[in-house]
């Protein structure tokens, strides 16, 4: 029998700026704000990125000194080659005796990092590992693109270990195939959509998520009942479509709602939803985690709750909000390229 491994603690961070999606509509009038189910999205501060967000979330955890690995899941790292995980390791004071690597698979980068951390600890490489899911998709959304309405920013950090477990890992199933329903090419700052055909048919998201979920159910065997499911939320509607397509009770998603208040958090999205779903759970409850990354692939994981996790960091991130108008968001997120040193600057 495999040794027990699971989630010891979870924390979340998001920028304080909030942009009403209706504000973006006043400029571009695409009509997609209402359809998205996102009321507000997080706006990244000009002095923040996925590394600072991850550091903020990780500092909310009680980190043991013997963390053996950091898996940093992101698709919006500020550096194309330098490891965000290594920078984070130094920020957390656990460098240099640590295995650090970045993990990238668009929106499911966070659950991919979590799966690796679980495998790392289960293999006995160290007692603890840190998995990060962090994204700043708002930097990767072109002006006027529907993604600009929903793309937010946030980070979730998961401490995985083999002692003091809050949610014991039970099973994992994944799907992946070449379905380019979204992509960002070298040199292009913006994510591009693969087109309406993918969105309307569900060939990307629904097909992979339902496939992973069914595989997970098959691995768990008959009679696997879930108390809650935390799912990827690129917008406020996917969980509803997913419930119908996978035959999951829509009520199981409601406690993990993230996108309507913060937008698409990319790699942080399913982990933030998991943190919400872990609050107030009873020991013995089974919680599902279902992610999606365009490109395309999905991870489905199940956990058995041993003790609930307080979602204080999530609630504080929601409460710590400042309204930001669209022109300010455009400036903060560097929406338009221009000379780096305006003449008005004191030098």
């Amino acid at each position: 029998m495999n040794p027990a491994v699971g989630i010891v603690d979870l924390a979340f961070a998001a920028p304080s700026g909030r942009l009403a999606t209706a504000d973006v509509e006043t400029v571009w009038q695409s009509g997609s704000a209402k359809r998205s189910g996102v009321h507000e999205r997080a706006v990244l501060d000009p002095d923040a990125d996925v590394i600072t967000l991850a550091a903020e979330a990780a500092r909310r955890l009680k980190l043991p000194s013997n963390i053996g690995a950091i898996f940093f899941g992101t698709q919006s790292s500020p550096d194309l080659s330098r490891s965000a995980a290594a920078v984070l390791a130094d920020m957390l004071g656990i460098a240099p005796a640590v295995f650090a690597t970045d993990v990238r698979f668009s929106g499911k980068s966070g659950t991919a990092a979590l799966a690796m951390a679980i495998a790392w600890v289960r293999a006995g490489f160290s007692e603890y590992a840190l998995a990060v899911g962090a994204d700043a998709l708002c930097l990767r959304a072109a002006p006027g693109d529907p993604l600009e309405i929903t793309a937010g920013a946030g980070a979730a950090c998961v401490l995985v270990g083999n002692t003091n477990i809050a949610a014991r890992f039970e099973a994992l199933a994944s799907t992946a195939s070449d379905a380019a329903d979204g992509f960002r090419l070298e040199g292009d700052p913006y994510v591009r959509s693969g087109g309406a055909g993918f969105a309307s048919s569900g060939i990307g998201d629904l097909q992979h998520m339902v496939g992973a979920w069914k595989l997970l159910l098959a691995r768990l065997g008959d009679g696997a009942n879930f108390a809650a499911v935390a799912a990827q939320q690129p917008d406020g509607r996917l969980t509803g479509r997913l419930a119908r397509a996978a035959g999951i009770d829509a009520e199981l998603f409601t406690g993990g709602s993230v996108a309507p208040m913060l937008g698409d958090l990319g790699a942080a999205s399913p982990l933030a939803a998991l943190l919400r779903q872990m609050e107030g759970r009873q020991p013995g409850d089974r919680v599902g985690l279902l992610s999606y990354g365009f490109g395309a692939g999905s991870d489905a994981l199940s956990f058995i709750v041993e003790r609930p996790i307080e979602a204080a960091s999530f609630h504080q991130a929601i409460e710590r909000r400042r309204s930001v108008d669209y022109p300010t968001a455009v400036r903060w997120e560097g929406r338009y390229r221009r000379h780096a040193h305006p003449l008005s600057v004191f030098e």
């Binding site: 002095d47 600072t52 550091a55 500020p78 920020m91 040193h341």
Partner: peptide, 24 residues
């Protein structure tokens, strides 16, 4: 304390460091 960028990437490398915010 929070960690934020002291300098943006205009030189090719962000410099991160301590800043502060109102305590939770």
């Amino acid at each position: 304390m929070v960690i934020r960028k002291w300098r943006p990437e205009q030189s090719g490398l962000a410099l991160y460091g301590f800043k502060f915010r109102v305590a939770s």
